[in-house]
Amino acid sequence: MYFASLSYTSPTLLASMVNTIAALSFVLAVILRLEDAYIRNPRGIAKVLGTLVSLAGVMSMTLYKGPVVKSLGHPLIYIHRGNGVVHENWSKGMILTAVSCITWSIWYIMQAYTLKRYPTQLSLTTWMSFVGAAQSAFYTVIVQHKRTAWTMGFNIDFWSTLYGGIVMSGLVVYIQLWCIEQKGPVFVTMFNPLSTVLVAVLAYFVLGEKLYTGSIIGAVIIIIGLYLLLWGKEDPQPELKERERAMLHN
């Protein structure tokens, strides 16, 4: 659903909407008691505010464009958007993106539960990659019957697939599992807003996509929210921790 929505929207908008995963994961983690809000102390308030501020930054990037930033040169890569390569359908793309974000946040929560019973990140990464590959192959067989959908030349398709397999499905997922085990799912998802900033910058310089002032303002708001939540996720003072242990014991 995530990759299918790329055919109907833009990379910058998709990366912006994906940042709602942090807010969804935080709500699910609080409901399932994987994360404590502690709204009676400053750090708990900072976690809630950080999530809300990041979500506000995402919404500002999505809803407000503003003036276009002047192009500094020619893009490095030209993407052909004719002959049906890209069909813009924002309503269909937004539905796919929304469902993708919901299932993605559930996936982070599932990882936190799984690691408690199966604390082996490399083995779990292998299993997830294997099941994901089988699922994608099955979907492709149903949707695309042409041989061209399975052939790959020595071009950007090859390098993007290689990067997605080795870096994203291998290295990144392994590091992500380790971070979830150490800090929890909310800590990991709160770094998703940085991808929005990076995608907007790379799309501007590499693909020649328009960069709006609204995206820059939203990126600043997102980073502020990120640091608020990270401060709230830090270990509280020793006396506060002792007080919390006593409350849990009682």
Rank of each mutant, 00 (worst) to 15 (best):
F191G: 03
L49N: 06
V220S: 05
W104Q: 01
L230I: 09
F187V: 03
F26G: 00
I102H: 01
L177R: 01
V99T: 13
D235V: 13
K65H: 13
I45A: 09
M168N: 10
H145I: 03
I221E: 00
V141A: 05
V48G: 03
E181G: 14
T9R: 00
K70Y: 06
K233F: 04
K183M: 10
Q176E: 04
Y38Q: 10
P11K: 08
Q121H: 04
T196S: 12
M1F: 15
A37D: 00
M17F: 13
V85W: 13
M168K: 07
Y8F: 14
V131N: 02
S129H: 14
S100A: 10
K210S: 09
T189A: 07
Y227L: 12
P42L: 11
P185M: 05
V86S: 04
L171S: 04
K183F: 13
Q144Y: 15
H80F: 09
G44C: 12
I95V: 05
S5F: 07
N89H: 08
S60D: 06
Q182S: 11
M128N: 14
Y212D: 03
S16G: 09
S105K: 02
V167I: 15
E181C: 05
T62K: 08
H145W: 06
K210C: 03
M152H: 07
S7D: 15
L207C: 04
F205N: 03
I216W: 02
I216V: 13
R147P: 03
T213Y: 12
A15C: 13
Y78C: 07
P119G: 12
T20Q: 00
S71G: 11
M190H: 11
M1V: 14
T125G: 06
I21C: 07
S71T: 13
T97V: 08
Q237E: 10
I221L: 01
S54R: 05
S71P: 03
V18R: 13
I79L: 12
K92P: 02
C101Y: 05
A203D: 10
T148H: 07
A56H: 00
S129W: 14
Y38I: 04
S215I: 12
L226S: 08
V172C: 03
P75D: 08
S169I: 12
G84M: 02
G82I: 09
Q182G: 01
M17D: 01
A15P: 11
V206K: 01
I109Y: 02
S100I: 08
S91W: 15
G73Y: 07
F3M: 14
R243E: 15
K183C: 11
A246Y: 12
G132S: 15
S100W: 12
